[in-house]
């Protein structure tokens, strides 16, 4: 069956009309962007649905889920995702379109997407699977976006992820990596502590982590800190629950003083010389990370600079 953007939009329009007919319907139509989500056909539908529903609350968007399989024609269907905010009087609804295609038929998808993108609003692509994002067949889809978000954190060692990240960073879009968003709170906490100490540079940094390889999170923090001397140390601990991240501690020394952040359950212990206190670092879900990334449109100079410096960190050895 031929996939027609006009027909899909009409389906959406009909859905809106049906909702509007409800008694005292009070439906609020919200849209701040087009979010194209690219996943493999076997991706967990339920988990993805939860993430998209969560993100919809904070970044109302027209979501286009593109499922890429091994074979098959391009098919599509449209629907509305609605929810009633707690204590609210108005139902909020956002549009969702699902498209299935195979690698062989991906070339036919961009014209459909062109017709479906919301006019005058930004377009973001979220493709959590780094390998899929780097496929040449997907490039025409990525080219539609001003921001492409991947997630390298599933990769055990940054050395394996780096070629794809470097390749994707040379596109016409702005690249973002959820692995970078995962370390924002580590960086922010350290930045605030460094600010209180009056540091302008890290003389020495030591990062420890759980599991094998050099995790992308560690490579990013190291590349961001740019210490004069860096110690990267693989810990003996088991890798923790998904969302907890793999960094176990981050210690920075400057001007003869040391500041440390150490993972402890769902928080971190903060050690500044004799003072020990704590911070909450709850488990992160994809929706929280996407929320952060979708809030950053335009040039993310700090991330881009860190990505460029990752090879230096990896060459420094462990």
């Amino acid at each position: 069956m031929e996939v027609d953007a006009g027909r899909l939009l009409k389906e959406l329009d009909d859905n809106w009309r049906q909702l509007g007919k409800g008694e005292g319907s009070g439906v609020l139509r919200a849209c701040a962007m087009t979010l194209i989500v690219v996943v493999r056909e076997g991706a967990d539908v339920q988990e993805l649905g939860v993430t998209l529903a969560d993100i919809m609350h904070e970044h109302p968007n027209r979501t286009i889920v593109l499922r890429v399989g091994e074979a098959g024609e391009v098919t599509a269907r449209a629907s509305l995702q609605c929810w009633m905010p707690f204590g609210g009087r108005q139902q909020i609804c956002c549009e969702q379109i699902e498209i299935s295609a195979s690698l062989a038929t991906l070339g036919a998808v961009p014209p459909v997407l062109f017709g479906l993108m919301v006019a005058d609003l930004p377009v973001a692509v979220w493709c959590p699977d780094l390998g899929l994002a780097d496929l040449p067949e997907l490039r025409p889809v990525l080219k539609l976006a001003s921001k492409v978000i991947v997630d390298s954190s599933a990769t055990l060692d940054m050395r394996e992820a780096l070629p794809a990240l470097q390749s994707l960073s040379s596109g016409s879009w702005r690249l973002a990596d959820l692995a970078w968003a995962r370390v924002t709170r580590w960086r922010e906490a350290m930045a605030h502590l460094a600010d209180a100490e009056g540091w302008t540079t890290a003389e020495e940094a030591e990062i420890t982590w759980a599991g094998p390889g050099v995790p992308p999170a560690v490579a990013y923090v190291g590349a961001w800190l740019r210490p004069n001397h860096m110690v990267l140390r693989c810990g003996t601990e088991e890798m923790a629950a998904h969302g907890a991240g793999r960094i176990r501690s981050l210690c920075v020394t400057a001007k003869g003083r040391q500041v440390c952040l150490r993972r402890e359950g769902t928080g971190v212990a903060v050690e500044i010389e004799r003072l020990k206190t704590g911070m909450v670092f709850p488990l992160l879900c994809d929706a929280a990370l996407l929320h952060e990334e979708l809030g950053v449109f335009g040039v993310d100079a700090v991330f881009e600079a860190a990505l460029l410096r990752v090879p230096e960190v990896l060459n420094a050895g462990v």
Binding site: T184, E188, A191, H192, W199, A202, W224, R226, V296, V302
Partner: peptide
């Protein structure tokens, strides 16, 4: 090195 105005 300790600055990220877009996120912090």
């Amino acid at each position: 090195p300790f600055d990220d105005p877009l996120r912090f």
